[in-house]
Design a protein around this nucleic acid. Sequence first.
DNA 1: CAATACCGGACCAAAAAGGTACGGTATAAG
DNA 2: CTTATACCGTACCTTTTTGGTCCGGTATTG
Lengths: 157, 157
Amino acid sequence: MLKLAKLTDYATVLMTVLAAEPSAWASAQELAERSHLSLATTSKLLKQLARARLIEAARGVHGGYRLLRAPNQITVADVVDAIEGPIAVTECSSHTGGCSIEGSCGTRANWRLINTAIRGALEAVTLAQMTAPLRRSGSETPLTFHPRPASAPPARE
Amino acid sequence: MLKLAKLTDYATVLMTVLAAEPSAWASAQELAERSHLSLATTSKLLKQLARARLIEAARGVHGGYRLLRAPNQITVADVVDAIEGPIAVTECSSHTGGCSIEGSCGTRANWRLINTAIRGALEAVTLAQMTAPLRRSGSETPLTFHPRPASAPPARE
DNA sequence: CAATACCGGACCAAAAAGGTACGGTATAAG
DNA sequence: CTTATACCGTACCTTTTTGGTCCGGTATTG
Ligand code: SF4
Ligand code: SF4
C-alpha cells in the first residue's frame, strides 16, 4: 500500500514534539509522555533518529534528546529517510534486481519520475510547518501544494 | 514503507499493455505473455481491475479484457485505488480509529494535506503518459512536476 | 455439447511490521 | 567511588500483510 509505516508516522510526531522546544533537552521518558507513545517504542525511534543525525543524544543524569537543526531546516522527507530509508515507490526505484519483469517493463522510467514528485512533496514540508496548526483563514497558509502545473493535462472525467 | 504493493505496480503494467491497443479484446493468457507476468497473477489483477470498472471483461471463446475508458482518461491514481483502495499515507487518513494516539496527535491535519498532494501527483499522470516513452529532448515532455511552488520555502541545507 | 475464458474465493508460505526486553555503557551528582 | 539516571545495541517474538497459486463454477460461442 502507498502508506508509510506507522512507526515512521510516530517518528514525525516525536519530531514535532521536539520541535516545540528546540535546544532544550528532553528525556525519552518525557517525550513518551508528551507524545502518548509507549516508552519502548519512543526509545527505539529516538535511537534511529539520532543515528540519522537528525537529533542528538546526551547520556547521564540530565541527558536526553534535542534537535540537531532548526525546525524549519528539517523536512518530513528527512524523517522518512531516517526511519525507513530512501523513498522508493516501486521495487525498482531504489535498487535493481528486485523485480522479475524489470527487463521488459515499460513503466519503469515514468514511475521514477512519479517517485521524484512524491519525494518533492515530502521535502517541501518542514517540521516548523508540521508543528504549526494550519490556519483556516485564507492568508499565509502554512501548507499548500500545486502539484499539477506545467504539462500533464490529466482530465479525469 | 512508502511503497506501493508490487501487485499494484504490476497492475499499472498490465494497464499500459492494454492501453497499447485500446478497444481490442485481449485474453488473460495473451496479456500475461505480453507483460511477462504469470497467468495466475495476471488473472487475479485483471479481475480486480474489472471489478473497479477500469476495464471490462467478456467471457466465452473470443472473450478477454478491454479498457473501459480512453488511455488519457485513466490515471495512475485510478489504478492504485482499484487494487489497494483509497490512498492513505497515514493510518488515520482514511478511516479513524486505527491509531492509538489519534486524540492527541498534532500532525494529523497536516498529514492529510500531504496525502492530498501525493494523490494529486498520481492523478496527474494518465495511462497515455505511462505508455509514452519519456522524450529526452526538451519540448513537450510527457511527465513533469513542479511540486513546490506557492508557499513552503523549505531550504534543506 | 464442448472448448474457451472469466468469476469468486479459499488457501498457504514467506516476508515485513510492530512491539518488547535485556545486558551494556556513559554521565553527573554527592 | 558509588549510585542513579538515561542512552545504546541488538535480539526476540508475535501478528499482520503480501505475494502467489489453485480449484470448482458459470457464461459464451459455434
Ligand atoms: S520494473 Fe516495472 S514492474 Fe518492476 S518494479 Fe520497476 S516499475 Fe514496477
Ligand atoms: S493520528 Fe497522528 S500518529 Fe496517528 S495515524 Fe494520524 S497522523 Fe499518524
